[in-house]
């Protein structure tokens, strides 16, 4: 795969489901886009418009009705270690200590115990959780557990990271901190990120590109060329505000 080739291709993907009253509904209608290595793509949209469905399809957790998803030119048949996922819901295993959680993916891949612990501790240091490696998840705050989730996924070193509104349930300050933690890790590791959010500011703060999903269709696919680091001041510049208004219009808020 050359750097110009897409790492992820979503080709005319459609997803149907049946409502509780028996009527069919389309969550995604022939969605197509490509993601290139190192991009930080934010999938933006309102609740119920298909962005989480899209992420689950890429993760291999949901089957498509039509179309195809390809990762590194191989069709997606199910979940796999090449696509790390951070869910909105707290998924950190409560029966494993923090460092065991971070080392989980490595255990699946049969790394030696010594190597697992070395990598887990290294990644705990990256998210500033060195001192809680032997703690149980119930002893941590929600923000710290979110850091554990980030460390777990990065420790497994997947080429693609999928995040489904991972900071949606956190308070503003913690959310901002974690956005920067994730952004810094992305810059250092040059991974490809697909990040679902309903927050326009979050998309502008993090993304190199924003894809707006509305009623199961892509209505906007735009590169974000704002300078980094993306502080509030950068978003408040005329180009930043123009982008913000455009995205708000596209998701149907203005």
């Amino acid at each position: 795969m050359t750097p110009q080739e897409a790492i992820l291709s979503v080709n005319e993907v459609g997803v149907r489901f049946v409502r509780t009253d028996g009527t069919p509904a389309e969550a995604l209608r022939s969605v197509s886009f490509k993601v290139f290595p190192g991009e930080f793509v934010c999938i933006l949209g309102r609740s119920g418009h298909g962005k989480t469905t899209l992420l689950n399809v890429v993760a291999g957790l949901l089957r498509v009705h039509r179309g195809e998803v390809r990762v590194m030119d191989r069709p997606v048949r199910g979940p796999g270690a090449d696509r790390g996922v951070i869910f909105q819901q707290d998924a950190v295993f409560p029966w494993m200590r923090v460092e065991e959680n971070v080392a989980f993916g490595l255990r699946v891949r049969r790394f030696s115990k010594r190597e697992r612990l070395r990598i887990a501790r290294e990644h705990l240091a990256l998210v500033d959780l060195t001192s809680v490696g032997r703690a149980w998840p119930r002893e941590l705050s929600g923000g710290m557990r979110a850091r554990v989730a980030i460390a777990s996924v990065f420790a497994n070193d997947p080429p693609i990271l999928l995040a489904d509104e991972p900071f949606g349930s956190l308070d503003y300050v913690t959310r901002r901190q974690l956005q920067m933690v994730l952004h810094d890790l992305w810059r250092q590791t040059a991974k490809t990120v697909l990040f679902v959010t309903h927050d326009v500011d979050e998309a502008l703060m993090l993304g190199t590109r924003v894809i707006v999903v509305k009623n199961g269709n892509i209505v906007e696919d735009r590169a974000i060329n704002l300078p980094t680091p993306r502080t509030d001041d950068v978003i408040a510049t005329p180009p930043g505000l123009a982008l913000k208004h455009l995205l708000l219009r596209q998701i149907g808020l203005e």
Binding site: D128, V132, W136, E139, M144
Partner: peptide
């Protein structure tokens, strides 16, 4: 790989200040 916590309000920005007591 070196990582620095982003700047933020002093009471919330650094988890190290309270993480040492986690569990106790």
């Amino acid at each position: 790989m070196k990582f620095h916590l982003p700047a933020g309000p002093p009471d919330l920005a650094d988890s190290r200040s309270h993480s040492d007591d986690i569990g106790r």
